[in-house]
Design a protein around this nucleic acid. Structure first.
Lengths: 349, 349
DNA sequence: TAAATCATCGTAAACCTTTTCGAAAAGCCG
DNA sequence: CGGCTTTTCGAAAAGGTTTACGATGATTTA
């Protein structure tokens, strides 16, 4: 195994001191341009590379950030990561990634690992609201700045980046109402999922605004593991009941795909007999037949914003940076009872 | 800014030496269990965390690997990353990720960054065949082991993990032929894309085996930037020409979605009037209408295998580890001319 | 010409750990 | 009780780099 070559090796082979070599490579002023040239040439010849560990240790600055995501192959999160990495690369930060696969235990291990590796900051989309308090406390005690992504914070001092899910739910539901659907079901996520609850709140708000009754029988809960299957089952159940809805709003696009399957099986036409609106504008949405109306979630933009916030916090010690992305409805065919696509106002309240 | 606390702080507050503290925290044998307990308690109290940089520097072992992918939000790559991270987490390796967005310049920068950060090894899915030689040379000169993912190597000594794309192309085409399709078009990728060429080879091989003519007019080239659009355009072109095919095999599922769009627009029924087979079994495949027949690419498995290979190379200095994953056709409705799903042998030759 | 300035370089400490070596103290044996 | 091992600990070096400081010789200034 060939030893990694360092400043010492260059110094020895040129009969100068390590300091001089360091000065040459770092473009310091107090060095003879002549020897500088010789050193650079030698460094090139020996294929020298800085040892970032030694540099960081000495200068006490660690140019790396950690990113913690629940699931990396989920399209939304992968775009968030893309946004983060894009900005991070430009700012010369190293990006260390950890995937929790929704286990709080793993989340904690990753955080511990990141702390040991002296990350300058962390961008995290917590797996679970309950775990949040304990695991984030680890970072707080170490005074490592962090930015929450797509999850609201429990601590008022936290910085975060999220979507306006309430308004998202509102816009989706309002759109269905304005299209003439009268009985709108909602398939939501688990009870402790704050995002799902926010969308549910928006859903209810819209119903109230248009004086439609809130029928708890039309609100179903998916356990979020296999959205497709849940969507299928609940849709069957809903469409076969006496209390049949004429539209379904789902908390994720994934669930909406299940709605499609059930509708097709029962020979119910989307959108004429059943309006459908999903959430997230995932890749699938445009490829469904008919294309799915959904609420946009520009993950990449959110990732970039998160990195910007983190960098500001690291450098200027800023705190309480918050950004709520506006919800934007993307209207496609699945919700258009009247075939023509009407222009629709995007904001409410 | 509160200073990071180290061994020294614990030592001072307990009136012992730094060595003793280190021994206690590392469970060495020559330490009094009594003092060990005191030290551990103090470490806990002060919320001490190892400085991984100092440890690595001293022990000269760097437990991290770098992963370089062309595009992180591409579903296949995100599953590869998932597989890698899964194994890496268990083996206690830090995972550093870089995304080239298909720029060889960026790929080089990332590699340089990784070298500086003393990664123990690299898993890379190169952006471009041409860049490969130069950029990998950087790693080779530093004797940093690397595993190629989903790209064949130019150097016979390289370790890699890939799919049997030739057989994949063969199986897909053979399946269409056996379903009764006579005139099968192929929409391929760019000319220098080795993967695309392998699938093309399989396509031709199948045609030859069944004594069907190879018609270059039926072979189209997508530039791989917007598969959907290319698929749409070429399909229109093909279906409107005199030399109309009755089936289309595409080099990616993405392109196949374009085929669907065009077919729907021209009111051509899939699969009755047009058989379609894609490649990759991406998320979309099952949600298309009809569900798309495609060739499987279990990215996660491949990622795990890549990590295993890398670890073996790091530890036992192995080389030339190669694994070619079998191609497996996933038959769905888009290719079933005869409605019944017949059992199909998976291997050829 | 003595003194002051300048350009260039080296010495040594520091960053935080681990590890080798040796030292002190305590226990054991005859 | 003298010599032995055993237990427990500390001093110091090492890992690769940066930096404060001092040193040297050359050049300029008065």
């Amino acid at each position: 195994m060939s030893k990694r070559i360092g400043l010492k090796d260059i110094a020895k082979s040129l009969n100068v001191s390590v300091t001089t070599v360091s000065r040459a490579l770092n473009d310091k002023f107090d060095i003879n341009p002549e020897t500088r040239k010789r050193i650079l040439a030698k460094a090139e010849e020996l294929n020298y590379r800085r040892n970032a560990y030694a540099v960081s240790l000495r200068k006490n600055e660690y140019f790396s950030i950690g990113v913690i995501l629940p699931s990396i192959d989920h399209y939304f999160f992968s775009t968030v990561l893309k946004g983060i990495m894009n900005k991070a690369h430009m700012a010369n930060y190293l990006v260390i990634v950890g995937e929790t696969t929704h286990y709080i235990q793993k989340e904690q291990e990753i955080i511990e690992q990141f702390i040991s590796h002296c990350v300058s900051g962390v961008i995290i989309s917590p797996s679970n609201q309950n775990s949040l308090t304990n695991n984030l406390e680890l970072l707080r005690r170490k005074r490592i700045p962090y930015i929450l992504v797509d999850r609201p914070s429990l601590d008022v001092n936290d910085s975060f980046v999220k979507y306006d899910d309430i308004n998202g739910g509102f816009l989706a539901t309002q759109h269905l109402i304005e299209q003439g659907f009268k009985k709108i079901a909602f398939i939501k996520g688990l009870d402790y999922c704050v995002i799902s609850n926010a969308r549910l709140e928006g859903y209810k708000k819209a119903l109230k605004k248009y004086n439609l009754p809130i029928d708890e029988d039309l609100i179903k809960t998916s356990n979020h593991m296999d959205g497709n299957a849940d969507g299928y089952l609940y849709t069957r159940q809903l469409l076969l009941s006496a209390n049949k809805p004429d539209a379904i709003f789902t908390v994720t696009d994934d669930i909406a795909t299940g709605v499609y399957s059930a509708a097709k099986e029962l020979k119910i036409n989307i959108p004429k007999d059943l309006g459908v609106v999903g959430y997230s504008d995932s890749k699938i949405a445009t490829h469904l037949d008919p294309p799915l109306t959904t609420v946009e979630q520009p993950g990449s933009e959110m990732g970039e914003q998160a990195f910007d916030f983190l960098q500001q916090t690291i450098i200027k010690n800023n705190s309480q940076l918050k950004r709520i992305f506006e919800a934007r409805l993307i209207i496609r065919e699945s919700s258009l009872k009247s075939a023509k696509l009407k222009v629709h106002k995007q904001h409410s309240n």
